[in-house]
């Protein structure tokens, strides 16, 4: 087997192992910690008999590892359990919401990734001059304000003062793509602002690192045109670090989505999770936690795979 293939298989296997460990962690976090789920659901006034019945129903009298494997077995077959609060099948309720969340995250990524890389390039090109300073000041300001506040500031200015964009991001299947995009324009804007700062700063650092390499000087001393230098010498070496930056920030986007969905009352995973945390609906929380962790770990695996593939030392071993 080619060594690089071995490395890739190893990396992916490690990611799956990590996901498995994360599922244990989520399960442990919701069962071993003090706090009685049955009590939480029924409230302080519940009779001991009612509590016992509920515990029985939830399988809470089984040993923890039995419950874990039952749960995991279900998850692997696509059965995420049923919600305590309304008895609905979690996988069914989640399906549409997951799609909505990915739709939102996708459009935020489509806008923010080129924008961040573009701004990063501009900042490098005009390093320590005014465009660089303006960009870094604005991005510092955006990362100093939490997402939900950026959301309300955007609503206050763009929906209330100028009445330009909708403050609630309601979407459904009967809407055309254009209508849907219009509806999610504000949450996308806020998500873009939250990841843009980090992504742009890290891109700037990654490109700067490549531009300061000795081989870029070699290219300059060959008398090559600036465009040729960037295209032929900087770009191939900047792919891996930039992809890494992008993936890390898209993973961060997954978290930002939770809060932004609540602000804009968007029918996605984040809203679903937060609602059920408040209702202490443990099976839903476990399922959502697992899905978020899977997406997050998946992004990190992709980042690693790209940097392995982009490394000439690994692609062409001695």
């Amino acid at each position: 087997m080619h060594p690089i293939l071995k490395l890739l298989v190893q990396r992916i296997a490690l990611g799956l192992l990590l996901l498995l460990a994360a599922s244990v962690l989520i399960f442990v976090g919701t069962t071993v910690l003090p706090g009685d789920v049955a009590q939480n659901i029924l409230g302080q006034g519940a009779t001991p008999q009612a509590l016992e019945n509920l515990r029985q129903q939830l399988g809470m009298n089984d040993p923890a590892h039995v419950r874990y494997f039952n749960w995991l077995g279900g998850v692997l077959q696509g059965d995420l359990g049923t919600a305590l609060t309304n008895g609905q099948d979690i996988a069914t309720s989640m399906g549409q919401r997951l799609g909505n969340t990915l739709f939102l995250a996708f459009w935020a990524a489509v806008v923010s990734v080129p924008l961040a890389i573009g701004l990063g390039l501009i900042a490098v090109r005009y390093r320590n001059r005014w465009p660089d300073k303006v960009i870094s000041t604005i991005t510092l300001a955006t990362v100093s304000v939490p997402e939900f506040l950026l959301g309300y500031i955007a609503i206050f200015i763009l929906s209330v003062q100028f009445r330009a964009l909708p403050s609630l991001a309601m979407i459904n299947e009967s809407m055309s793509l254009g209508e849907q995009l219009y509806a999610i324009s504000l949450p996308v804007l806020v998500l873009v602002l939250t990841v843009l700062g980090h992504m742009m700063r890290m891109t700037r650092a990654a490109i700067l690192n490549v531009m300061q390499s000795a081989y870029i000087e070699t290219a300059e001393l060959k008398g090559l045109a600036p465009f040729t230098i960037i295209y032929r010498h900087a770009f191939p070496n900047a792919i891996a670090p930039v992809v890494n930056v992008v993936m890390l920030n898209l993973a961060y986007l997954v978290v930002g989505v939770v809060v932004v969905e609540v602000v804009f009352v968007y029918p996605g995973m984040g809203q679903y999770l937060v609602d059920h945390v408040a209702k202490r609906d443990v099976p839903v929380v476990q399922a959502c936690g697992l899905v978020f962790a899977a997406v997050y770990i998946g992004m990190n695996i992709i980042a690693d795979v790209v940097s392995i593939l982009a490394n000439p030392r690994l692609r062409h071993p001695k």
């Binding site: 000795a214 081989y215 070699t218 032929r232 070496n237 030392r313």
Partner: peptide, 15 residues
């Protein structure tokens, strides 16, 4: 033309 002290750094690792 120019010959640098550290050829290892002066060559583009990806070409």
């Amino acid at each position: 033309t120019y010959v640098a002290q550290s050829a290892a750094a002066a060559f583009n690792p990806a070409k």
